[in-house]
Design a protein around this nucleic acid. Structure first.
Lengths: 340, 340
DNA sequence: CCTAGCGACTTGAAGGTTCAAATTCGAGTC
DNA sequence: GACTCGAATTTGAACCTTCAAGTCGCTAGG
């Protein structure tokens, strides 16, 4: 004994077994079911494992167990621009994956629209056991395709097309904007306006309802305006809204881009965000942090953890969760709601 | 994770072999070496492969081939903020991976500082064959650790500590800022200033040298100022610089954040970026696009492709590339250099 | 007519692991 | 001393693929 295996190839379970003078199964048990091994044997085996730097081969284990121990996620936005949520969400997945005994495999197509083809090949080759998905949209072909084939997956964001699909986690937009109003009222802002997307967007409407609820609760009333999700449109809409709320007022926005529009208008007018007019954005994007915008931050870590739990449960039980999960976002104050 | 649900398990090579009335090796050859199979047999086998929806098992193939066909990448920035480069770079890796016959596995630690521990376990378990790394910094322990163990990897950005390490691809900062000056000169901007980081940063100094070179080439001279990589510092430094270059002048910046600082100062003064003062940033970040800033875009796709080539070559030849690769960034014009 | 050679396909083996079944060992019972 | 029982450990088998080394049938050359 006491020889390191030849060549650069790493030690296998058999190398350890020979070195420790036991069978390969005892080595396996020492790692997976230590209680089945007599203490003195266990100690000897573990010492050899350590000495030989042995780690079970992922390939052999997945072949044996008929599972990849991996979750796939498609990265979209090549043609356009990656969503600002992509990096923090991926980070959340990568951080929480080990606790779910899996790792994260990314993939992308250079096609403009999401195509099920890559999902198909990754699933067929058993490279992944399940998928996590983000940015689903109406008429998105992917959820239906995966459900037909009974491929386990979970979605960041409700799948609006299919209410029977419950493996999702989403941000409670209503709670977020409601918190925003509370925060502004507590800091003494008087008129609290709303800058939102045009009606008809599910997410936008939900976020607006939180503003409506909270105003009512506080016995307040406020002006509102609408803009598309771009800076030019936001600045145009913000002009009138800033006039309406006036000095000492504040504006809650559906997104950080819209909030940035308000910010830029104030800057152009020589007004100071926070001191003169309060602004709260939504998403907790890099943009918001750069500009000192108070924003409702998405709980990416918790979402990632929830989704991994949901796919894990599907793999175990072969059935969907009883219901989707709504997670509360967190308002992170910054300069744009500082009155001093 | 648990075992894949016991539904109809997917077809194996033996299922196809039996269905087509050939041996498993002939099925394998039909996919990997079609020229070894008689045309009529090939057709029959391929038809069965198609009918049974057969794809070779990744686990079995990697066990057999003694390679994972995967490249690992650590996602950093949990404690702080993910780099703006993370999402587009990952997208580049994911898009180019199939051409290199591999896939991308992400991982992250919740530790503040990068730790070699996860690299160690992923490598030992043969979950990945190699690594790609970004955001290396002086005294980064990771490159040294990997080299000691002869683990193949490639770095986005030079490893400044270790000139003997050649598996890197980086952006030619000098070429980028030089292009920026050319672009501004061609559009008729007169005084062309520089807003950069404090001296001593390798990247910052390189980018500045492109500005210096190009000014000289055009027989020009220009003012410069320094700021830290945050908006407040950038705006403070931009004030004086805007005065120096005056109307019809322009400012080239080391980064988009600094460029944004200039942009905000102009806005506050009622000046219009582009028409009154030109601005060019560096990095091609989301921020630049949102604000209409002309910026020198990093060639993320080409970098990803180069790095994957470099790790692939290391796996094949077992030796480092002869030299690192410098890639030219691309200036993407936007409103901040439109004079009309 | 025999055989070398070639094309087409099949069989053996290995790659590393872990579950299930079988074996060995030791102590306690009658 | 044979016998039972349980704990500790070993052996058999399977997971799926592909390389290496076959086998088989046929043709061309001697």
């Amino acid at each position: 004994m006491a020889t390191v295996p030849t060549g650069r190839s790493r030690a296998t379970i058999i190398d350890v077994a020979q070195a420790a003078g036991v069978s390969r199964q005892t080595v396996s048990n020492s790692l997976k079911h230590p209680e089945r091994v007599r203490p003195d044997t266990l100690e000897r085996v573990l010492a050899e494992i350590d000495r030989l730097d042995y780690t079970p081969s992922t390939a052999a284990t997945s072949l044996r167990d008929q599972r990849a121990g991996a979750v796939g996620i498609e990265l979209t936005g090549l043609g356009t621009t990656p969503s600002e949520a992509l990096a923090p969400f991926l980070l959340g997945l990568a951080v929480h994956a080990p606790a779910h005994d899996c790792h994260i495999v990314t993939f992308a197509t250079d096609a403009d629209r999401p195509e099920p083809e890559r999902y198909r090949s990754m699933w067929r080759s058993r490279l992944v056991d399940a998928f996590v998905m983000m940015d689903t949209h109406p008429d998105d072909p992917r959820p239906g395709w995966l459900r037909e084939r009974r491929v386990p997956f979970a979605s960041f964001g409700r799948v609006w097309d299919d209410p029977s699909f419950t493996a999702w986690a989403d941000v409670d937009g209503r709670a977020g904007t409601s918190d925003a109003v509370d925060h502004l009222a507590a800091r003494g802002y008087e008129r609290i306006g709303w800058l939102g997307w045009p009606d008809g967007s599910a997410i936008g409407d939900e976020r607006r309802s939180g503003w409506v609820d909270a105003l009512e609760r506080h016995g307040l009333d406020g002006p509102e305006a609408r803009a598309e999700q771009d800076l030019v449109s936001a600045m145009a809409a913000a002009e009138g809204l800033v006039d309406s709320v006036g000095g000492g007022g504040a504006i809650v926005c559906t997104s950080d881009v819209l909030a940035l529009g308000v910010h830029q208008v104030l800057l152009r007018r020589g007004l100071i965000p926070g001191r003169d007019v309060g602004i709260v954005g939504f998403d907790g994007s890099q943009t918001a942090r750069t500009h000192g915008l108070t924003s409702v931050h998405q709980p990416y870590g918790a979402i990632a953890d929830t989704l991994l739990t949901q796919v894990h449960d599907q793999l175990t039980d072969d059935e969907l969760p009883s219901a989707g999960v709504m997670l509360a976002p967190e308002l992170v104050p910054d300069a744009s709601t500082e009155r001093t």
